[in-house]
């Protein structure tokens, strides 16, 4: 009843905030301290309840609209801003395209000469944002890869690999059909601490690549790679380290 660690270090350990030495030290303490072992189990259970509970509340669409109107009102040079709020993303995408910043151009400096992806960053961001509109996220909603995978069968000319990584903190939410660069693609949807990650998958004849360095625009990050005849692009507003972790899991 008196191990001080239950009120201190245990939480740093649970939250992944200890350095390697601190974590190793606590792990060896765990082997001999029943109190900490029990307390850690309780905290993990509480955490998973909180994260699975659906307690996270997203902003209502109406609020988003009101805020955009408020922002417009607080901005000078009205001519540029009389664009209806809902068109902003389209405008932003158009600006990116006009700048002719292609997927290829972005990756050029990153050493891989064969990394021409068949779609642009603007298209990826657009598809991701579109999926976040109410009712658009999944065509098949299931956390079971044995349900999601067969669903794609017959709807596409290929069957994407579908895996759940719930144990690693990436819960499969479902899948849907999407269109990228004029091609039909599979979109696998994962959630990470209530944030949505879209993984777009389509077949390719190009050779494998490593996971490319991250791209970042408009508050979204993405990672792209090719593996065993499939082209992958994962995009989300989670941190790049989270995204990279999922990319590595998928890459295996």
């Amino acid at each position: 009843m008196s191990c001080d660690f239950t009120r201190t270090v245990l939480h740093g350990y649970l939250d992944g905030e200890l350095d390697a030495a601190g974590a190793a030290e606590f792990e060896s303490h765990l082997e001999s301290c029943r109190e900490c072992t029990t307390a850690l189990g309780a905290e993990e259970s509480l955490r998973s309840s909180l994260q699975r509970s659906g307690l996270y509340e997203n902003a209502p669409v109406a609020l988003r609209k009101k805020i955009r109107a408020g922002l417009d009102a607080a901005t000078a040079s009205p001519a540029a801003l009389r664009i209806p709020a809902w068109r902003w993303l389209a405008v932003a995408a158009a600006i990116l395209l006009v700048g002719s910043i292609s997927w290829f151009a972005w990756w050029r400096p990153a050493r891989d000469s064969a990394s021409t992806a068949p779609f642009t960053a603007a298209e990826i961001i657009d598809a991701h944002v579109r999926s976040l509109q109410p009712g658009h996220l999944t065509d098949v909603a299931s956390t079971d890869n044995h349900t999601v995978k067969p669903w794609f069968d017959g709807k596409l000319a290929f069957v994407p690999p579908v895996k759940n990584f719930a144990d690693e903190g990436f819960q499969l939410v479902g899948g849907r059909l999407d269109v990228l660069g004029g091609q039909n693609v599979a979109a696998l949807v994962y959630s990470r601490r209530k944030h949505i990650i879209n993984v777009f998958v389509l077949p390719t004849k190009e050779p494998d690549t490593p996971i490319h360095p991250p791209g970042l625009r408009q508050g979204y990050q993405w990672r792209h790679w090719r593996r065993q005849g499939m082209e992958y692009c994962a995009i989300s507003d989670v941190s790049d380290s989270d995204l990279y972790e999922l990319a590595q899991l998928l890459y295996q």
Binding site: I67, L71, A74, T75, A76, S77, A80, Q218, G219
Partner: peptide, 19 residues
């Protein structure tokens, strides 16, 4: 006074965190 450029940057950097 904020201008269109600020507005676009805000849209890009801050508004995604409205949720």
């Amino acid at each position: 006074v904020l201008d269109a450029q600020d507005r676009a940057r805000f849209e890009q950097l801050v508004l995604p965190h409205l949720d």
